[in-house]
Amino acid sequence: MIEGRKILGSIGLGILTIFVIVAVFAPYIAPHDPHQMYRPMEHPSSSHLLGTNDIGNDILSEIVYGTRVSLFIAFVVSVISMLVGTSLGLVAGYFDKVGFLIMRVVDVVLTIPRLPLIIVIASFIRPSIWNLIALFLIFGWTMPARIIRSEVLTLRRRYYIDATKMIGGSDFYILWRHILPNVIPLVVVQFIMEAIHVILAESGLCFLGLGDPVAMSWGMVFHYAFECPIIYVSDVWMWWMLPPGLCIVFTVLGLTFVGYALEETFNPKLKNPFGGMER
């Protein structure tokens, strides 16, 4: 079954690479300026491969630029969440008193249902990419903090930690040189989980009309397609709704595959959703 892991991991990595390339080189890949207006509601043709939307924007170009927005939000949120979550997790696992306080905050934030709170706050504040990122960050750091902490709790009982203490290693030195490298694999897996969550949650908020109307992410393209009254009664959905939807699906799928492959590589004993495949 080792082979299965490698194959899935490579497929996932391949999908993600394509999307990242599209995001980075969007201006060179997009056939048109996404803000340029052409004749609205045109069917796919050689000049507009996915047709145009209700205000005449080229849909393919919108989706290409949308890749940037969607991936950017997921990336920024996941990176900051992991930085904050890992630091707090390390501190919480190593120092008992501070750890107790941090974990109570984590408990509370994790118990409050994420989605309803994000929806209600998002509808009060003006939706913009940065506001969305800030909203996701409120919750993003908690899960890594909790997981890293429980790992640190076991790591710090190891003999080599005691040995380092005896030869006079400071707490910071131990955390930085001996504990952090050991939790990095967990952080990477958490990073992927958070990215999956943000991609799905952001598209969900956009679908409800709470996305940034200026920065067209995949979710926003989808939202405007859903709002269009003739979307069901004609074939328009095939080039306006299906492509951004599939982009979301494939990104999540790619991330899931990579996450699975990494998790199996780092820790074959770990109980992941695919656990036990190697038995």
């Binding site: 799905l200 598209s203 969900g204 679908f207 859903f226 959905w237 709704m241 939807g245 979301i248 699906v249």
Partner: peptide
Amino acid sequence: IISISSFPSFFLGILLAI
């Protein structure tokens, strides 16, 4: 099941509706 779980629920719903 991994593939189905990758669909946002609103997208899945719209596909089923169509």
